[in-house]
């Protein structure tokens, strides 16, 4: 049980990171960026090029990857999404599928072959044993980073006008524009930030998993997507709760059942269950009740 909790937490926090990026884009643009995960993989290739191929410190590779991802996310918004203000939100999602296909094809064409790629860990060391599970320094760092990110986002979104604009953008674009917040900037911000958060998640989880190939972070992204959906797709708190839940479910199911692909299977199962029983997600329900009481 203790092991499930520790491992679930370690994985769940990463899924939360992906889920937060998804929720941000959903709140800001009303759609899902299906390429978000693959931007994370792309970031890994960039970071790998700096750290392993050119022996630079981890932090340089990480910063380069984050900058690249933010630029890619915001650039995609500028080149494609900003032209689709009037379009159906499904069409925007289709455009992100194009980006996903592009990134996968690009990685396969230009990065694959030859050596097995492994990213170095930000901090080396053997780690500590908790409930019989060895927790590495990287995993501790990812917990801290997720906490810091959550706090920073909460401050930004709840305490600044710009942040409130982000939260309200998809719900009432006109109102956001009327109070003087440029929607274009809100949109570019969420797409860039969403992509960067993906890279962060990919950088932290990669050392735990080992090798990465094209499509690596898309799998994490799908678990993050499940987390976001379970959390209600619009709630940042829900993204964290959903991420942890998905983490525990995955690790728990892996312990109880034994068949190939048990992790993804259990996640899909939980997601379908939540959609059937509580279509608005777990957290939206909480929020609604709180509002109804007030």
């Amino acid at each position: 049980m203790g092991q499930v909790l520790v491992l679930g937490l370690v994985y769940g926090v990463i899924y939360s990171l992906f889920a937060v990026g998804i929720v941000l884009v959903y709140r800001g643009s009303g759609t899902i960026n299906f390429a978000q995960g693959e931007i994370g993989t792309f970031g890994l290739f960039v970071a790998w090029w700096f750290t392993t191929a050119h022996h630079l410190p981890w932090i340089i590779g990480a910063v380069a990857a984050l900058v690249m991802a933010a630029a890619l996310g915001a650039g995609f918004e500028w080149a494609i999404v900003s032209h689709m203000v009037e379009a159906n939100r499904v069409s925007v999602a289709v455009a992100t599928i194009g980006l996903l296909a592009f990134l996968v094809a690009f990685e396969v064409r230009f990065f694959e072959g030859g050596n097995i790629r492994k990213m170095v860990a930000p901090i080396r060391g053997t780690g500590w044993s908790v409930f019989g599970v060895v927790v590495s320094p990287t995993q501790i760092l990812s917990l801290l980073a997720a906490g810091a990110l959550a706090a920073g986002l909460a401050l930004l979104l709840k305490k600044t006008d710009f942040g409130l604009g982000v939260l309200a953008a998809a719900q009432d674009p006109v109102a956001v524009r009327l109070v003087g917040i440029p929607l274009a900037r809100v949109s570019a911000f969420v797409w860039g930030l969403g992509a960067a958060v993906s890279v962060l998640g990919a950088l932290f989880i990669e050392p735990t998993i080992g090798v990465f190939t094209p499509g690596f972070a898309s799998e994490m992204f799908i678990k993050g997507l499940a987390a976001a959906v379970v959390g209600g797709l619009t709630s940042l708190e829900g993204a964290f709760v959903g991420g942890l839940l998905i983490g525990f479910v995955e690790v728990g199911a892996n312990r109880v059942f034994d068949f190939p692909g048990v992790k993804m299977f259990s996640i899909l199962f939980v997601m379908l269950l939540v959609l059937l029983v509580k279509p608005d997600g777990l957290m939206e329900g909480f929020k609604f009740r709180r509002r109804a009481l007030a």
């Binding site: 939100r89 959906v229 299977f265 899909l268 379908l272």
Partner: peptide
């Protein structure tokens, strides 16, 4: 589709992407 299409929005895309992985892995 039954759970996914009860709601408006992109849920079918989300569910089918999950199905693609489950089909592949299980």
């Amino acid at each position: 589709g039954l759970p996914a299409l009860r709601l408006r929005g992109l849920y079918l895309a989300v569910i089918t992407i999950g199905f693609a992985y489950v089909a592949d892995q299980t």
